[in-house]
Simulated assay, not measured.
Amino acid sequence: MKIKNEMADWGLRSASYWMTLFIAVGIIIVGVRFILFPRVGAAGFGIPLSNNADLAFGRIKGIRDIFSGLALLPLLFFRMKKATAFVFTAAIIVPVTDCFLVYLNNGPDPSQLVPGITAVFMAITSFLLFMNTQKTIA
């Protein structure tokens, strides 16, 4: 079965594995920060909350971020490189959109650097994930 071969070829010795794990754990930490300290998280994001009614929006972003990280962990644990590559690549839309939204809200601002750099890092990681991915034929 190709899954077993793929598992043997990708894992702890792969840069793309660790890069993906870094993003997954990092976004979980960001999500926890948004849930526990929504004002701090939102200010760091670049769009501060304006009143107490906005706290729920910070927590909504936190849940989204935690889910994004957790969705990758089983794929990494089972060393499913191809599935990880597709899910991770689709997830690039999140930091790209975040960067764009911060720009629309603030204009050019240093707070755009984090989602912008994250998007570039994820694009590089996606490229590495798709490199040498074995083609499976049913």
Results as ranks from 00 to 15, higher is better:
Pro48Gln: 04
Lys82Asn: 11
Pro108Leu: 15
Ile66Met: 11
Phe130Cys: 00
Ala85Ile: 03
Leu104Asp: 04
Gly46Leu: 01
Arg64Gln: 14
Leu73Ile: 15
Arg79Met: 02
Ala56Asn: 09
Ala90Val: 13
Pro95His: 09
Phe121Tyr: 15
Ala119Phe: 05
Thr97Val: 14
Arg64Lys: 13
Phe67Trp: 13
Pro48Gly: 02
Phe67Arg: 06
Phe77Ser: 07
Val114Gly: 10
Ser126His: 03
Pro110Arg: 04
Ile117Glu: 04
Met80Lys: 15
Ile60Leu: 13
Leu49Arg: 04
Leu113Ile: 11
Ile92Arg: 08
Ser50Tyr: 04
Arg59Trp: 01
Gly46Asn: 10
Val94Asp: 02
Leu49Pro: 10
Leu113His: 02
Val102Glu: 05
Leu128Val: 07
Ala56Thr: 10
Asp98Gly: 08
Asn132Val: 08
Asn105Lys: 14
Leu49Thr: 03
Val94Gln: 08
Leu129Val: 06
Phe67Glu: 12
Pro74Tyr: 00
Gly107Pro: 00
Ala123His: 04
Val102Asn: 09
Pro115Met: 09
Ile124Glu: 09
Phe86Leu: 14
Gly116Tyr: 08
Val87Phe: 10
Leu73Gln: 07
Gly62Glu: 03
Asp109Leu: 03
Lys82Glu: 12
Pro95Arg: 05
Asp65Cys: 03
Asn52Tyr: 11
Val94Lys: 08
Lys82Trp: 01
Phe77His: 11
Phe100Tyr: 15
Thr118Ser: 13
Leu76Ser: 05
Phe88Asp: 07
Arg64Ser: 07
Phe78Ser: 05
Leu72Val: 02
Val96Trp: 01
Phe57Asn: 14
Val114Ala: 14
Gln112Lys: 12
Val120Ile: 15
Phe86Thr: 11
Ala123Glu: 02
Leu129Asp: 01
Leu72His: 01
Lys82Ala: 13
Pro74Met: 05
Ala119Gln: 06
Ser126Tyr: 00
Ser50Lys: 13
Ala91Thr: 12
Val96Asp: 00
Asn132Gly: 14
Leu113Lys: 08
Val120Ala: 11
Gln112Gly: 15
Asp98His: 13
Ile124Pro: 01
Tyr103Cys: 12
Leu73Glu: 01
Ala91Asp: 10
Ala85Asp: 06
Leu73Asn: 03
Asp54Trp: 00
Val120Thr: 07
Val114Asp: 03
Val120Asn: 00
Leu72Asn: 04
Ala56Met: 10
Ile93His: 10
Leu72Asp: 03
Thr118Ile: 09
Gly69Ala: 08
Val87Arg: 02
Gly69Cys: 10
Ala53Glu: 14
Gly46Val: 09
Lys81Asn: 01
Val114Arg: 13
Ile60Asn: 07
Gly116Val: 00
Phe57Arg: 12
Gly116Asn: 06
Met122Cys: 06
Met131Gln: 13
Ala85Asn: 06
Phe77Met: 11
Ala83Asn: 06
Pro95Leu: 09
Phe127Ile: 11
Ala90Arg: 03
Thr97Lys: 05
Phe130Gln: 00
Leu72Ser: 04
Phe127Val: 10
Pro95Phe: 01
Lys81Cys: 02
Ile124Phe: 12
Ala83Pro: 00
Thr84Arg: 05
Thr125Asn: 10
Pro108Asp: 10
Ile47Gly: 03
Ala83Asp: 07
Thr125Trp: 02
Ile60Gln: 05
Ala85Lys: 05
Pro115Phe: 01
Phe86Glu: 00
Ile63Asp: 06
Gly107Asn: 07
Arg59Glu: 10
Gly107Trp: 07
Tyr103Val: 12
Leu104Asn: 14
Pro95Met: 08
Ala56Pro: 00
Met80Phe: 11
Leu73Gly: 11
Gly69Pro: 07
Thr118Phe: 07
Arg64Asn: 09
Phe121Val: 00
